[in-house]
């Protein structure tokens, strides 16, 4: 198992290199002259040239990329053009807010969708199934930011139960987490249902019933365990959307996370901040994917056996 994790960590290196290469070049080739931005509007051409020297912008882009990667290994992603702060530190200061929101949303999504998916599958073709599927269909068809706004209208403007923006304690987490979580729940419900439907007709389910196991045990122990792999895959794939794609929810609720950080600095053409943050996000995603693969092994002994043999 450790050998496998090590192998996967080594495999991450080329993926990160490709990502950083694409992001670095596209950001640096298209975002205009950073020296003008740093020096300010009133700077003389000589001052702009001086800034360009200081930032090393006169070097060819390939050299700049190599220097950048050298810095990255030491945990140095450069300094923001706008705030003049260290990119890595800024990223890390925003990370807890994003992780908190992601964790809460995934928790809500799982708590809603897996029971609902099982319930609809067990009651296939009944009105309960239809109702559950309609919920899921509405969930995937709804723009996330709109759901957020509707929750604000209802729960914070009319009922006054939760704050409509900011990050201050548990109460402020509820609405953003429900916004992100429900969209996710819709998708996982659909996967859980179809995965359970595949499993439910298998022979081992009949065997489990025949030997006298309770219906609950048959469904949760024998059924769900075997249906979990596609469900975990979908959750894993969606995590990238939750982690960095929650820029919309973060905008609606003024949540100080990474999505918002990237969005704010893109509009200010702050190349080091955006490049660094996106590269960090992709490293984070690679790690999340690794965790998802390890979780597979945890739930499926067949997959675990493969690792042990290696």
């Amino acid at each position: 198992m450790w050998k496998y994790i090590l192998k996967r960590l080594i495999q991450m290196i080329p993926a990160i290199l490709i990502t950083s290469f694409i992001i670095y070049f596209s950001m640096n080739l298209t975002s205009g002259d950073p020296a003008m931005l740093v020096a300010g509007e009133k700077a003389t051409p000589a001052q702009v040239e001086q800034v360009r020297q200081e930032l090393g912008l006169n070097d060819p882009i390939v050299i700049r990329y190599l220097k950048y990667m050298g810095g990255m290994i030491r945990g140095d992603l450069g300094t923001s053009y706008v705030t003049k702060q260290d990119v890595f530190k800024t990223f890390m200061s925003r990370l807890p807010a994003t992780l908190e929101l992601s964790f809460a949303s995934v928790l809500i999504a799982v708590l809603v969708s897996i029971p609902l998916g099982i319930y609809t599958a067990v009651n296939q073709n009944s009105w309960k199934d239809t109702a559950g599927m309609i919920f899921a269909l509405f969930g995937v068809s709804m723009p996330n930011f709109w759901l957020g706004l509707m929750l604000i209208v209802l729960f914070s403007l009319n009922l006054g139960w939760f704050p409509s923006s900011g990050r201050a304690g548990f109460q402020s987490l509820v609405l953003p987490a429900v916004t992100v979580g429900l969209g996710l729940a819709a998708l996982i419900t659909r996967t859980t249902r179809s995965s359970m439907l595949d499993v439910i007709r298998q022979d081992y389910m009949r065997t489990a019933r025949a030997k006298g196991a309770s219906e609950r045990r048959v469904i949760y122990k024998h059924g769900l365990n075997n249906a979990l792999i596609p469900i975990i895959t979908v959750i894993g794939l969606q995590l990238s959307n939750v982690l960095t794609g929650s820029v919309l929810a973060e905008t609606v609720f003024s949540w100080p996370g990474i999505g918002r950080l990237i969005f704010d600095h893109i509009s200010k053409r702050d190349t080091p901040m955006v490049t660094g943050a996106i590269i960090m996000c992709s490293i984070l995603m690679c790690l999340v994917n690794l965790v998802v693969d390890i979780v597979y092994a945890f739930f499926d002994p067949r997959i675990k056996a493969q690792y042990v043999q290696k």
């Binding site: 490709i18 950001m27 959307n241 794609g245 999505g259 990237i262 893109i266 955006v274 996106i278 992709s282």
Partner: peptide, 13 residues
């Protein structure tokens, strides 16, 4: 790589 970055983020960039 493009798949790993959320599409909304690609579009924003």
């Amino acid at each position: 790589v493009l798949y790993a970055i959320p599409n909304i983020m690609i579009a924003v960039v």
